[in-house]
């Protein structure tokens, strides 16, 4: 699909969509959002790119094969559970560490956040894998 208009639009839209999906992911705890929706958003962003520039182009941007992303995502989710274990409380127990970032005030990063990013990555790579294989194959 080599319509120039689509290409120029995608070149502009892709980063925007991805940034927005990350925003949705990060604010998941308090406002509507979270790993799943973020992942889906990112997938649609990449799909847009695939439509405009073709599937091989997407593989080029992703550099690593998608299956590794799945592994990374799952790994993250798993690792985020470990601190809970070390603390002696049950696996995946939320651990929070707060530190102040100049300018924004108190910032609390916690294991659930890591878990959420893990979810985000997995969902993203899973959907993308299926879609791209379908697209490539058709």
């Amino acid at each position: 699909m080599n319509s120039i208009i689509l290409r120029t639009a995608t070149r502009f839209m892709l980063p925007l969509l991805i940034i927005f999906s990350i925003i949705v992911l990060l604010r998941g705890h308090n406002q509507p959002g979270g790993g799943f929706v973020g992942g889906l958003l990112a997938t649609s962003a990449f799909m847009l790119y695939a439509m405009a520039f073709g599937v091989p182009a997407v593989y080029r941007i992703l550099r690593l094969p998608l299956t590794t992303y799945i592994a990374v995502g799952l790994g993250m989710a798993l690792v985020s559970g470990l601190p809970g274990l070390i603390e002696g409380s049950p696996f995946l127990y939320g651990q929070w560490v707060g530190f102040t970032v100049t300018g924004f005030g108190e910032l609390k990063i916690g294991t659930p956040l890591l878990f959420d990013i893990g979810v985000y990555l997995t969902v993203l790579s899973v959907c993308l894998l299926i879609l791209l294989t379908l697209a490539e194959d058709s």
Binding site: G28, N30, G33, G34
Partner: peptide, 8 residues
């Protein structure tokens, strides 16, 4: 869990 968005 310090989160207002209960679902997530």
């Amino acid at each position: 869990a310090y989160g207002r968005n209960l679902v997530n």
